[in-house]
Design a protein around this nucleic acid. Sequence first.
DNA 1: TATTGTTATACTCTATAACTATA
DNA 2: TATAGTTATAGAGTATAACAATA
Lengths: 166, 166
Amino acid sequence: MSSALRPDPDREPALRLSEFLPYRLNVLAETVSEGLARSYGTRFGISVPEWRVLATLGEFRSMTAKAVGAHSRMGKVKVSRAVAALEGRGLVRRRRNEADLREAFLVLTPEGERLYRKIVPLALAHVERLTAGLSAADRAHLDRLIDLVMRRSRELGGALPENGNG
Amino acid sequence: MSSALRPDPDREPALRLSEFLPYRLNVLAETVSEGLARSYGTRFGISVPEWRVLATLGEFRSMTAKAVGAHSRMGKVKVSRAVAALEGRGLVRRRRNEADLREAFLVLTPEGERLYRKIVPLALAHVERLTAGLSAADRAHLDRLIDLVMRRSRELGGALPENGNG
DNA sequence: TATTGTTATACTCTATAACTATA
DNA sequence: TATAGTTATAGAGTATAACAATA
């Protein structure tokens, strides 16, 4: 261990990376995602996009792919692939919409529902452990702060990508 | 717009994705990163790992690749590639460590320093805009909450990947 | 012509591990 | 034997656009 982890005393560091909000948010999100993946993602062989679709259908029961994407902030390509994977595993089923044959309603199969109900308590328990050090007021505050920064970030032009030719 | 974005009234949704902290953190980090990339990432043709190396060297002046990785939470492979790219563009230079020839000290070249000093005010201004809706107390609170959740997440097993055979 | 959704292509990213050179 | 760092390989992820079907 040869070089020291302290700023050069001669120079005013213009920016401390470890205090830079975008960096902090990235590292935090990454670390949390990883922990989550370890605690059940790997176990159930489910990717993040697949989990988002599963969670959305578990919550809303029946939705078009477009609506799923709107709710879980994914583009249509990502949704399409996640749905195909879930359908291939018998977790999701399509119901044609007679009123508009371009789209279909997606629903969880009984197996999908079972998996959803198996994952949810684990997910909630994980968040519980994650926020164990926070008071109820802290948690509410955190939610509010995330919403505020999120809104500002969207206003500043951070939208979702991949909406190519839609 | 055929299907509605509201929960099925018959069922108690077991989990609301839009309130699920890991999801929220992911979307927030993604949105912020994107906005940042738009405001100057693309403009200077610099990737996130490259930016992290640049920022670390700008802050600490001279460090080994290992120390850079430790400070910016990246594995040695990612650091190595980012450094190679920056070196290729004349932004970073290596200084051999006579005391241990396995490692080298990395420093910004004058051009690297110039780029760093050009990006930093933009980065800081971006964060400023991002947190414009927050009071000073809110910002401090947000920092504290991020630290807390971060620490918990690490305790729960969210470390950094890729440390393969190191 | 516009919209929903799928597929094809190409490209980036990156994990893993093998490797080099020093220690 | 262990460590700093590089490179090779291969696989995952995904943006973009072209496409098909329907409206």
